[in-house]
Design a protein around this nucleic acid. Structure first.
Lengths: 232, 232
DNA sequence: TAGCAATCGGAATGCCCTATCCATTTCCCG
DNA sequence: CGGGAAATGGATAGGGCATTCCGATTGCTA
């Protein structure tokens, strides 16, 4: 989203011809719209239709669907990371923490594609993963502050935010347009359960490693994935 | 699951030939296994392979995939409904309520196919829907008792259980084998947020009608569904 | 045990998807 | 302007899926 505009592989590749540059923009805009509406499962054909462009044109600009996804969600990932920064700036740690959760979950609800991106890992899309990790580090600090302030339960684990996203994805995904605000209630319940003092002990958090592996599962169209994938 | 054994259309249709009867059993057993492992997205071909049976044989016994699903999950749905009954028998309403939640969510975690079934509606499969509604009525009573006992927050709504299932489906679905117990922590958090006294108000519950519509969305292979479906 | 209807299984159909090919069109520099 | 490189888009390959067709097989009865 920075004005200068750079393609992932900005590295001195020749400048695009004017029409190519224009089409690239069209495609990203179209994909942004289509993915937001239909999730990452939206077909390349539907993106092409929306962009009023041939399918081949998309694949020339983005060798694989995953590359398009990475390009489309780069800025949304930035916004996601920014939300953490904003939360860290909040003088009230708990308020910042809660605000962050609501903002992040709202992003999931507002963009089905992004919801998919957040609970999936694209080993190939480095920029996306870098951002995610940045955001994660910020979250860890956010959590630390909130705990220190005494408002966040002591046994809260950073991985709980990942679980929260997975749960929220489930709700957003299942309710869709039919009940577009249902997620708010779920998130509110979660937040209340996060608040100190804890009402009881919790089962152990999953291993970080395990959660990471979980996010690899179900990556869209990974050629190397015999993926038993489930749950349309 | 009654011993007598009846096919959905038990109505005096001629008895099956011995081999047909045997194959029918094989198919259901195979489907049970495959759906549990891979979710409802498992292909009919994979079920046929597991059953060591031709694909056509499956379709002769079950005209459409949905019929197979209904046959396979009939007993699981019974167990689901039974869990409510058991919970209602618990002398401690809150204990029963929590026990029910844990049992139901455990069922989701133990059978990916069932997790899909629970958050999806098959207008065609009447038996399944009847059971679901039975269970729902029981849940409403369970909730009433728990509220009366003072342990369940007053603003808890039956639809919250549906949302809980959707959220749990999201977790179970995303974590899969990688973190098979992650859902326990999530459910524990939910339960703590359900406990009275409430720590704060909640956004309104979605309309029941809306939730029902939501469950119609994404039904697998519904011919009448232009389903934009998302999130494999 | 012969014969026929019931049943089978795998090939075939039709649809959707990602990704590639290639003849045609468009841009841009001289 | 003209010509070649860059870029395009529709057709096509190749794979997965649910469902159907049909020739071959099997259980059952007489």
């Amino acid at each position: 989203m920075t004005p200068g505009a750079q393609h992932p592989d900005d590295t001195a590749a020749q400048p695009l011809r004017s029409d190519a540059e224009r089409n690239r923009g069209r495609i990203i805009a179209a994909a942004r719209k289509v993915f937001a509406r239909d999730g990452l499962n939206a077909s390349m054909a539907s993106v092409a239709r929306e962009a009023v462009v041939g399918i081949a044109t998309i694949f020339r600009h983005f060798p694989a669907k995953e590359d398009l996804v990475a390009a489309v969600f780069a800025d949304r990932m930035d916004a996601y990371a920014d939300a953490v920064a904003v939360a860290l700036d909040d003088p009230d740690p708990w308020h910042g923490f809660v605000g962050y959760i609501e903002a992040a979950c709202a992003m999931q609800a507002a963009d089905y594609g992004f919801a998919d991106v957040l609970t999936t890992t694209f080993p190939t899309a480095k920029a996306l993963e870098t951002r995610r990790n940045e955001a994660y580090e910020g979250m860890v600090r956010l959590i630390g502050r909130a705990k220190e302030s005494g408002r966040l339960r002591e046994d809260f684990d950073p991985s709980d935010l990942v679980l929260l996203h997975m749960a929220n994805a489930g709700v957003v995904n299942a309710t869709g347009e039919a009940a577009p605000d249902a997620w708010r209630r779920v998130v509110a319940l979660f937040v209340q359960s996060f608040e100190a003092p804890a009402r009881g002990p919790l089962p152990a958090s999953p291993e970080h490693e395990a959660l990471y592996k979980a996010m690899l599962r179900a990556a869209p169209t990974s050629p190397a994935a015999p993926a038993p994938d489930r749950t349309s």
